[in-house]
Amino acid sequence: MPDSDSPLHELVVTAEEAGRRVDQYLATLFEGVSRGQIRKAIEAGHVTIDGINCRPAHKLTVGELLVYPTVEPRSDEQVGNSSIQLDIIYQDDRIAAINKPAGMITHPAKGQWKGTLTEALRGNFAQLSTSGGPTRPGIVHRLDRDTSGVILIAKDDEAHEYLKKQFQDRTTEKEYFALVVGAPDRDRDMINQPIGPHPKIRERMAIRRGDDEGKEAQTFYEVIERYNGFAAVKALPKTGRTHQIRVHLAHAGHPVLCDPHYGGRRVLTLGELKHDDSDAVVIGRTALHARRLAIAHPDDSQIREFLAPLPQDIMQAQAKLKELRPAT
């Protein structure tokens, strides 16, 4: 349930939200909060439509004014778990750098409260920043579930805000490694295309030119090695839009290998490389890794560089591409 001093938010319903149940819509806004909690907040009179209390099943209509509070997860959903081992690249009294494994979500999402990075952080660190809210202790930025690699953690709120501002000001240096489908013609290029929510598929982003939904986004990439039908690339995002590298590389005609949203496949099998019936999996997750992050430290403003070596699954997939699909 929201606190009595919980801030209120207002939304004039547009065509994008229209037709959705109010409880279903609100559940998409608060990560780590169950639909049951949302319904209780509505039934307690904390949510109004045009100034009148509504029912959870009310369907939103264009032009309605929806007013709702911030709903926080229950305290029993904010528990640490010290049994989740973390690969700590670096830590001191102010910050930590973690090598996040693929398959781990950064912070709780709807129906996904266990096995998160934040659960592991609570179980392994005595102090974490609170600036990101109760569901995101220490979290300054995020990586997608299937993206492995460097993620930075703040241990106090002052450090959190210092680091966060660098991401906002685009002064950080981020480098990713990706295996992609197809071999780019150019050795290097800058992709400069605006990104916004997909107009039809809520879980995806898309190139949005010529409308207010698209936000400026730039990704520089460089080919590391070419194979027959695939390539290894280095990607340096200049901005930090959701799914940016994945959307940009797909737009360039070279989606990240095994990206189910933007590449059309979840796994690469040995049979696909050898042109036979083998169903052995070469790699079964989005082949994207946050390899390097350089950022100024909150203590002395000096640049620190954090590196995460390529994980075993990506190294093995790259080795198979070299062996079975050498460049011609």
Rank of each mutant, 00 (worst) to 15 (best):
E175R: 14
F177M: 11
A178S: 12
A178D: 08
L179K: 12
L179S: 10
V180R: 02
V181C: 13
G182T: 13
G182I: 09
G182Q: 11
A183S: 15
P184M: 12
D185S: 13
D185A: 10
R186Y: 10
R188N: 14
R188H: 11
D189E: 13
M190P: 02
I191T: 09
I191K: 03
N192G: 05
Q193D: 04
Q193I: 00
I195S: 02
I195F: 13
G196L: 05
H198R: 13
H198T: 11
H198M: 06
P199G: 08
K200W: 09
I201L: 06
I201Q: 10
R202L: 04
R202F: 14
E203G: 09
M205W: 01
M205A: 04
M205R: 15
A206V: 00
A206N: 09
I207S: 11
R208L: 13
R208V: 14
D211G: 05
D212A: 15
D212H: 11
G214C: 07
K215D: 05
A217S: 01
A217T: 06
A217G: 09
Q218E: 12
Q218K: 10
Y221E: 11
E222C: 09
V223Q: 09
V223G: 06
I224P: 12
E225K: 13
E225F: 02
R226S: 12
R226Y: 09
R226L: 02
F230N: 09
F230Y: 15
A232I: 04
V233I: 15
K234S: 07
A235P: 12
L236P: 01
L236I: 13
L236F: 00
K238A: 10
T239L: 13
R241E: 07
R241C: 10
R241H: 05
T242V: 11
Q244V: 06
Q244D: 13
I245T: 12
I245K: 08
R246K: 06
R246Y: 00
H248K: 06
L249E: 03
A250N: 10
A250E: 03
H251A: 03
H251Q: 03
H251V: 03
A252W: 06
A252D: 10
G253I: 00
G253P: 11
G253F: 06
L257D: 06
L257A: 03
C258Q: 11
D259W: 00
D259P: 04
P260Q: 03
H261P: 04
H261G: 02
G263A: 00
R265T: 02
R265G: 00
V267T: 11
V267G: 02
